[in-house]
C-alpha cells in the first residue's frame, strides 16, 4: 500500500477507535445510570426486576436502623418520601451511613419485596459546613419545631 494511504488509514482508524471507545463508555455509563439506582417508588411499583442485581437508592428512615447484637447484620428502611423499602445488609457500612442520609445499595430484591444488599454506599449532598454551624442549624430547627429541611436534596 502507498505509505501516505497507509498513514491515512491508520489515522482514520485511530480516530474511529478512540471515538468508538469514548462513545461506548458513555453509553455504558448512561445505560447503567438510568438505573444507577431505582427509587423506592419504582421498586414498590414493580418497575425493578426481582432476583436480578440492581441498585436501590433512598434516604435512610429515622429510627429504622436495627443492628443485630452479635453479627454485622443490619436492617433498615429507605424512602423517597412516597414509598419505603426494607434493606437487609451484612457487612461494614460506610462512615457516612446514618439515619437521614442518602444511600445507594447494590443487591437483589427477594420475593417478599425485601432488598438483600451486598454493598451499601453513602451518598452525600453538595452542602458543606463546619460542625458548629451544623449544630446551630439543628438547634434553630428544633426550636422552630419539626421541619422538613433537606428532604429532597440530600439523596
Amino acid at each position: 500500500m502507498h505509505p501516505v494511504r497507509k498513514k491515512r488509514l491508520f489515522v482514520i482508524s485511530a480516530i474511529v477507535l478512540i471515538l468508538g471507545a469514548a462513545v461506548t463508555l458513555v453509553m455504558y455509563a448512561l445505560q447503567q445510570n438510568i438505573n444507577l439506582f431505582y427509587s423506592p417508588t419504582q421498586i414498590v411499583m414493580g418497575e425493578a426486576p426481582r432476583n436480578a442485581t440492581i441498585r436501590a437508592g433512598g434516604m435512610v428512615v429515622n429510627g429504622s436502623v436495627k443492628r443485630h447484637s452479635e453479627t454485622l447484620a443490619v436492617v433498615f428502611e429507605t424512602t423517597d418520601f412516597q414509598h419505603t423499602i426494607t434493606i437487609e445488609y451484612r457487612g461494614i457500612l460506610p462512615d457516612l451511613f446514618r439515619e437521614g442520609q442518602g444511600i445507594v445499595a447494590q443487591g437483589q430484591l427477594n420475593d417478599d419485596g425485601v432488598f438483600i444488599a451486598t454493598e451499601v454506599l453513602a451518598k452525600h449532598d453538595e452542602k458543606y459546613m463546619p460542625p458548629e454551624v451544623s449544630e446551630a442549624v439543628k438547634n434553630a430547627q428544633s426550636a422552630m419545631g419539626e421541619t422538613k429541611v433537606n428532604s429532597q436534596s440530600t439523596y
Binding site: A22, L25, V26, Y28, A29, L30, Q32, N33, L36, L93, P94, D95, L96, F97, E119, V120, L121, A122, K123, H124
Partner: peptide, 19 residues
C-alpha cells in the same frame, strides 16, 4: 473511599471524566 465507601462506581460523572 472514606465518604461513599467505594473507590469507583460506574456513574455518569465518573465515567465521563474517565472519557
Amino acid at each position: 473511599k472514606p465518604t461513599w465507601g467505594t473507590w469507583w462506581v460506574w456513574d455518569a460523572r465518573l465515567t465521563s471524566v474517565l472519557v
